Amino acid sequence: MLPKVNQTMFIQASQDAGQEHAATLRSRVADMNATSLYLEIPLDEKSGRYHRARAGEEFRVTYYTAEGVKHQFSTTVTGFRKEEAMSLIEVRKPAAEEIAREQRRSFLRVEAQLEIAVRIGDKLRFVALTEDVGGGGVSFRCERKWPINPGLKLMCWLLIPYRSGSIEHAQFAAEVVRVKEAEPNHYIVMMKFDDISDVDQQKVIRYCFERQLDFRKD
């Protein structure tokens, strides 16, 4: 599946390949045509610096579809385009057969304690902490006083902090898949996304990708 406009892209640049801890850059597809993708200037969120690409530079690009399938391809910077508010990097658009894709659907899932606001029905609301998060759903710990059972639909708002220091919110409806008891007097509630926008799902996937990179460096 070819990337779409607004798709979040994770990039490793060839000029950084020799570094011990090569930076993973984040960008977004701003536009495309039959032969090219136009990317926002890639950002190294750890340093807060923008990557100064050059013509002929090679990029190794990773992205995830809404279904959780990982895709990768290699491309080359072919030029630059000036817009009113920003500059864009033009890279060669890959042919479908050049994109490597995982055969199985498997969202990144990482352990994380993030703040999540939960609403049950119209009146019951509480705040909890996640146990783990992933592109397909989250789990959280809460007190047993809340009436939560498998099959229940919950409305949730997830607070997502990134390495850059920026904070985003993702809103979604989720279905409870499993509930297990945990001490002291708590439940672990496992949920899968039932209704989440592509934009908010990409926020969660981006967070998981950053966490995965942090784990690899430890």
Rank of each mutant, 00 (worst) to 15 (best):
A85P: 00
M86K: 10
M86Q: 15
S87I: 01
S87K: 04
L88K: 13
I89F: 00
E90M: 04
E90K: 09
E90D: 08
E90V: 02
E90Q: 13
V91S: 10
R92F: 00
R92W: 07
A95S: 05
A96D: 01
A96L: 02
A96I: 04
A96S: 09
E98D: 13
A100D: 03
A100C: 05
A100E: 04
R101Y: 04
R101A: 02
Q103H: 14
R104A: 06
R104G: 03
S106E: 00
S106W: 00
S106L: 03
S106Q: 11
F107A: 05
F107V: 01
R109M: 01
V110G: 08
V110P: 03
V110S: 12
E111T: 13
Q113V: 07
E115W: 04
E115Y: 03
I116T: 01
A117R: 00
A117S: 08
V118K: 01
R119F: 11
I120L: 15
I120F: 09
D122H: 07
K123N: 14
K123Q: 09
L124P: 00
R125M: 08
F126E: 03
F126T: 04
F126P: 02
T130N: 02
T130Y: 12
E131F: 14
V133G: 02
G134K: 07
G134T: 06
G136N: 12
G136Y: 15
G137R: 06
G137S: 08
V138W: 11
F140E: 01
R141M: 09
C142H: 11
E143V: 07
R144V: 13
K145L: 03
K145P: 09
W146Y: 14
I148P: 10
N149G: 02
P150L: 01
K153G: 11
M155L: 14
M155Q: 11
M155C: 06
C156H: 00
C156P: 01
W157H: 08
W157I: 05
W157F: 08
P161Y: 13
Y162V: 06
Y162Q: 03
G165D: 03
S166P: 00
S166C: 00
I167P: 06
E168T: 10
E168Y: 05
E168A: 12
A170P: 00
A170I: 03
Q171D: 09
Q171P: 01
F172C: 06
F172P: 02
A173H: 04
A173M: 11
A174L: 08
A174M: 07
E175R: 05
E175Y: 13
V177L: 11
V179M: 08
V179Q: 07
K180D: 14
K180F: 08
A182N: 07
A182C: 12
A182G: 10
P184S: 07
H186P: 03
H186Q: 10
H186I: 04
H186R: 11
Y187I: 05
Y187T: 05
I188C: 07
V189D: 02
V189H: 14
V189I: 08
M190F: 15
M190P: 03
M191H: 09
M191F: 09
K192Q: 13
K192L: 07
K192E: 09
F193M: 02
D194G: 14
D195Y: 11
I196G: 15
S197F: 10
D198I: 05
D198L: 14
D198N: 11
V199K: 12
V199N: 12
V199P: 06
D200Q: 09
Q201W: 02
Q201I: 01
V204Y: 12
I205V: 13
Y207A: 06
C208W: 14
C208L: 03
C208V: 04
F209M: 06
F209Q: 12
R211P: 00
